[in-house]
Write a protein that binds this DNA or RNA. Structure first.
Lengths: 343, 343
DNA sequence: TTGAAAGCGCTAACAC
DNA sequence: GTGTTAGCGCTTTCAA
């Protein structure tokens, strides 16, 4: 079923069919309708390869997922929801989501990967995830004039559409809650500091502390890779400190669950001897012991916005740089609690 | 940088360049070397669109992920590792992994999605995940003569390469362990029965029971969607039974963690009052309370094999139907334990 | 408002 | 062993 056969079937020329299908204005309304309907009946789908040759349009959007330092992980559950939502939005508009991986830790290699996809015209635009403070991908795509949206902001002086969760606010809220419960020594189990989200979370945390008249203590701010294991290890480390934190705020629920395990091992009752908060409101956070106080954010909302902002770029409908900052909510459960008098 | 420019640069015809690059034998070894080297220097990459028009080769492999019934989830952490490993193997051979979603619950729509990808020549082959007992996708791809590998077997009478974990053995092992600890009333929190893996697990479970002279009790075999929530709900349901199971075997660690939460709520001490086992050896299984006895299996090994079997198909090197059955191991931790005398 | 025709970059007959 | 050439299916001038 090529445009050729379809045109023959309709007794029209292929160019008329093409124009009708692509919404050109110089086609009789009646003709267009006839074409569109017959195309649907026959299940005609333009060959993406042929199309991309002429128009350099691939009708695909690329995502290159950096593999975890630990290797093996394609994406975690979090990115699952995000990409699912993006795919849904794009799908409705005839775009496919091309998901690829990037194994090498070298930033140079990563940029090469983007260049290859651009050059081969495999994609019309990109979604960048795990945005870095100084993100070479943002620089590259901007320089090349390739449409893209980032999940997370960068600190480069480049205007571009982005979607982000209000990380700063989230961690300010969490910290304020711990402060209100009387905690003064609050640890932060953060993500890798090269990521913008980690910096923003730290900012929010430090702001809350300062507003309470406290000075952040570097020793209580540690970084891990967002897994249960790293939460466990980092917590064990913090608990070994001469002056240990009485409260912990974790970069995600998985780390918090690792933190809880470590506290248990140290004979501390979570929610009483030590106050722990997570982030993400994962299914697991509801069912761990004790249930985790955490920050809710609607991952799929973000995905939807990412998809929409990218489509707007691709349509070139809107030149203004749009963005979406997702609000956050605190969900109180039982893993946090007031500071002990002896704390 | 088209083959045209490259050919001019080399002072050769484009066909010679094409042949050299595609490894045809009728090219002087010296010429080939010169071409290959210059192509690399200039960073020449064939245009996938143009290539797919002529050769119907896209150098891409498709995976269509059915969205969860719950919606929103693109893939869970499990498929993350699997797809990551597949992508790695394919990547090394110049193939990209095209990951798409499928939203509609209708099987008809799903098959249409495959047909579209085939017809548009967007992919050269498929990896089918979550294989069903009667899988229309297997039927379709077989009928169309499109290369594919399945993760999980089907019960259709169709020979095709597959990779699977030894689900039957895994659940036989788990059941035997519970039996050895003196349990007689063993519940199975299974996955949806339409999936082959769920049937095989039930088979393994029932075989172990029968070999021990027991008859499986239908009321103790329940199905959920592999989330913590469903583990929680199903366990609450089983615990409400007049004659409740004293041991549970769960289809994955997430369900087991939900099960633990439910038991805690019912005032049961897991590992003592009730014996629970999971499956998957996830990071979370190590850090929950009590640490989960579970089944280890190497997800990324499976991904590697899937990639290799598919490449073999694509190369048409090997017509014999290959397969790989992954062995499993039991990991004993503290969530299971001997049956109570009063049990 | 429609049709004819020129390619996009590539592969694979076929000729030399 | 290498070059010539005919399309693959499509979009897009340009003519009618």
């Amino acid at each position: 079923m090529s445009i050729q056969t379809l045109a023959q079937d309709l007794g029209l020329s292929i160019s008329t069919v093409s124009r009708a299908l692509n919404g050109y204005s110089d086609v009789a309304a009646q003709t267009r309708e006839r074409v569109v309907q017959r195309a649907a009946e026959l299940g005609y789908r333009p060959h993406p390869g042929a199309r991309s040759m002429k128009s350099s349009k691939s009708n695909a959007v690329g995502v290159i997922l950096p593999m975890d330092e630990r290797g093996g992980q394609f994406i975690n559950a979090f990115y699952s929801s995000l990409l699912g939502a993006i795919a849904g939005v794009l799908d409705a508009r005839g775009y496919t989501l091309l998901v690829t991986t990037h194994f090498s830790p070298s930033v140079h290699d990563e940029v090469t990967r983007y260049e290859h996809l651009i050059h081969s015209r495999s994609v019309d635009g990109f979604v960048i995830v795990r945005t870095l403070l100084k993100d070479p991908r943002v620089q590259l795509l901007h320089d090349r004039g390739v449409p893209f949206v980032t999940y997370g902001r960068s600190e480069l002086n480049i205007e571009h559409p982005w979607v982000d969760t209000d990380n700063e606010r989230a961690f300010e809220l969490a910290t304020q809650r711990q402060l209100r419960q009387g905690h003064q020594r609050i640890g932060l189990l953060n993500g890798p500091s090269k990521y913008t989200f980690a910096k923003l979370r730290r900012d929010g945390y430090e702001r809350a502390l300062r507003n309470a008249g406290l000075t952040p203590t570097p020793a209580w701010i540690v970084e891990g890779d967002l897994t249960e294991s790293s939460g466990y290890t980092l917590t064990s480390q913090l608990l070994g400190l001469p002056e240990r934190p009485t409260a912990l705020i974790c970069a995600n629920d998985a780390m918090a669950i690792g933190a809880i395990a470590s506290c248990r091992q140290h004979g501390l009752q979570v929610g009483k001897d030590i106050s722990i908060m997570g982030y993400g409101n994962s299914d697991a956070s509801r069912y761990c012991d004790p249930p985790l106080s955490t920050i809710e954010h609607k991952v799929s909302d973000n995905g939807r916005h990412l998809g929409q902002l990218l489509l707007a770029q691709l349509d070139q409908l809107s030149t203004p740089t749009l963005s979406y900052l997702e609000p956050v909510d605190l969900i109180a459960r039982q893993s946090d609690g007031p500071a002990q008098a002896s704390g």
